[in-house]
Simulated assay, not measured.
Amino acid sequence: MDVRQPAARPRRMEPFAADLPLGSDPLAVRRRVEALERLLEGMIEIPVLRRKVGLDAIAGVIPIAGDLVTAAMGLYLVWEARNLGMPRWQLWRMIANVGLDTAVGAIPVAGDLFDLLYRSNTRNLRIIRKHLDRHHPATRVIER
């Protein structure tokens, strides 16, 4: 009987979601919230400004609907934080970040500029990372 190992295929570009873990363990949650923050806040770099922007600033150009969609995605970070067992005061702080971003972001022109400067999802990720580093040190990642 001939048992052959399949030839190693070259790794092709896979969809963004294919690399995200599905578990509820702290490491999986950390990877998901970091990926969502990168999508919302730092997906594309604007060469002239040397500043990264993401879906939050891009979708903010669409009146009302864009801000509501990105607010829902920002609230997903809060939901993941709740599942980690974070204290309520931190959850309220995260909700306030998303609420401020949504409320000011809904103002037509000033809101778009505000979305470039105020990164609520980055702030919320910082809160989640601090909690994970303190309560789940095995998830700690050395940053570049």
Rank of each mutant, 00 (worst) to 15 (best):
V98T: 10
I127P: 01
G60L: 08
F16S: 03
L68I: 11
M13E: 10
L40D: 04
V69Q: 01
R31D: 15
V33A: 00
R31H: 14
V33D: 02
E41G: 07
H131T: 03
V109F: 15
G85M: 01
E143L: 10
T122E: 10
N124W: 04
R134G: 14
L132V: 02
E143P: 12
D115S: 06
V3I: 15
V78T: 07
L84K: 03
D67S: 13
P108N: 08
F114C: 02
I44E: 04
L36Y: 12
A81H: 02
A65H: 07
L91H: 02
A106Q: 10
G42L: 03
N83I: 11
L22K: 11
M1Y: 14
R30E: 12
V61F: 07
M94W: 04
A71G: 06
G105R: 00
F16C: 07
P63S: 02
D133E: 06
R12I: 15
G42M: 07
P21K: 03
G60I: 09
V69C: 01
S24A: 10
A35R: 01
L68N: 12
G74P: 00
I142G: 15
L116T: 05
E80I: 00
S120H: 11
R134M: 09
G66K: 03
I107H: 06
L27Q: 12
